[in-house]
Simulated scan of single mutants.
Amino acid sequence: MVELSIIIPTIRPESEIDCLRYLDAQEFDDYEVIIRSDPGASKARNEAIKRANSEKLVFLDDDSMPRPGYLQAVSDALDEHDVVAGRVFQPDDAVITYKQLPWYDQGDEGKYTDLVVGCNMAMRKSVIDAVGGFNETFFHGHEETELGRRISQQFDIWYEPSMVVEHYYAFSVRQYWEKSYRHGKADADWWVVDEVPLSTRLRKCLPWNVLRRQPVETVAMLVLKFGRVRRLTAQLLGLVDIPERRQAHGNASQVRRESSEGISPLSSGRD
C-alpha cells in the first residue's frame, strides 16, 4: 500500500497538468496520483476516493504547485491529525493580488482552523467514511467549504504551514470575472443545500453594497467591483437554475479520460 493517494480533478489532458511535474520533483516518492475527469469537481473527487489505495488522501488542483518537501510534510501531518489544511501562496507574477484570501495563507504557526481550500488539503479516508464525501450538488465552487463544515462537526482541522503550495487565484482579470460568476452559481447551490427561504435568497442578491455611490479609487477596485456584479448576476440566475438539472446536463456531456478501471494509470513514476 502506498503512503499517499493524491487526487486531482481536471478536464485537461495529462500533458497539461502542471501539478504533475512538481510532484515528480519531490524527494518523497511513496505515492500514487489519481486523476478524474468526471463532470464537476465534487464527483471527480468522490470517484477518486473510491479508488484510492492509501488511508491518507491529498487533494490538489491541476494547477497546484507544491513546493519542495510538500509530500513529506503532508505525510507527517496526517500522522498527527485527521484533517489538515495547507498554506497557499500566489506566485510573484499573480494578477489578482489585491483580493483578500484568508483561506490561502493562515500564518506562520500551526493552529486549529475551520478554513480549508481545495487546492491544498488532506485527510484520512476514515474521515470521509464518517462524514460522507463531497456534495455533488456543488458543480464547481464551495464543495470543499461545505465538506469542511461537516468535518468540523466531528473532527478538528489542523492548519499546517509547512504544507506549502503555490496557486494562482486567477491567471487574468477575465478569468477572475469568470470565476466570480461560477462562484455566484455555487452561492445559489449553497442556499438550496441550507434550505434558505426564497425571500432571503432574493435579499442576498440585491446589489446595494456594490452599486451604492462610492468612489472607485483604483483600477484594482474596479476589477473587484465588476467581479462582484458578475457574482450577483450568477446568484440571481442560480435561483431558477435547478442544481439537479445542471448536474444531469453535465453527466450527458461528460468527457471520459479513464483506463479500463476508471482511473488514469499514473503513479509517482519511481515505484
Rank of each mutant, 00 (worst) to 15 (best):
L4V: 08
I6V: 07
I8F: 05
T10Q: 06
I17L: 11
L20S: 01
Q26T: 10
Q26D: 13
E27M: 07
D29Y: 05
D29I: 08
D30I: 08
D30L: 08
D30K: 10
I35N: 00
S37F: 00
P39W: 04
S42M: 07
S42C: 14
A44N: 01
A44L: 03
N46Y: 06
K50A: 15
R51Q: 14
N53T: 11
S54F: 07
K56T: 07
L57W: 00
L57G: 06
F59L: 10
F59H: 04
D61F: 04
D62V: 10
M65Y: 02
M65L: 15
M65H: 11
P68C: 12
G69M: 09
L71K: 01
Q72T: 13
A73W: 00
S75N: 08
A77G: 12
A77P: 05
A77W: 01
L78Q: 03
H81P: 07
D82S: 08
D82E: 13
Q90A: 15
P91T: 15
P91A: 15
D92A: 15
D93T: 09
V95L: 10
T97V: 15
Y98V: 11
K99E: 10
L101H: 13
L101G: 05
G110P: 14
Y112N: 12
Y112W: 10
D114L: 07
V117S: 02
V117E: 04
C119E: 03
C119A: 10
M121V: 04
K125H: 03
K125C: 02
I128C: 03
V131F: 02
E136N: 08
G141L: 12
E143P: 04
E143L: 08
E144I: 12
T145E: 06
E146T: 05
G148R: 04
S152N: 02
Q153D: 13
Q153Y: 03
Y159I: 08
M163L: 07
F171T: 10
S172D: 06
Y176F: 15
S180E: 06
Y181V: 02
Y181L: 07
Y181H: 08
H183L: 14
A186V: 12
D194K: 14
D194F: 01
V196N: 00
V196I: 15
P197V: 14
S199P: 00
K204V: 06
L206D: 07
P207F: 04
N209D: 14
V210R: 01
V210D: 02
R213C: 11
E217N: 11
T218R: 08
A220G: 07
V229D: 00
R231I: 13
L232E: 00
Q235M: 15
L237G: 11
D241L: 12
I242M: 03
P243K: 01
R245K: 13
G250Q: 04
A252Y: 02
S253F: 04
S253A: 10
E261I: 12
G262V: 09
S264W: 02
S264D: 04
P265H: 01
P265V: 06
L266Q: 01
G269P: 05
R270D: 01
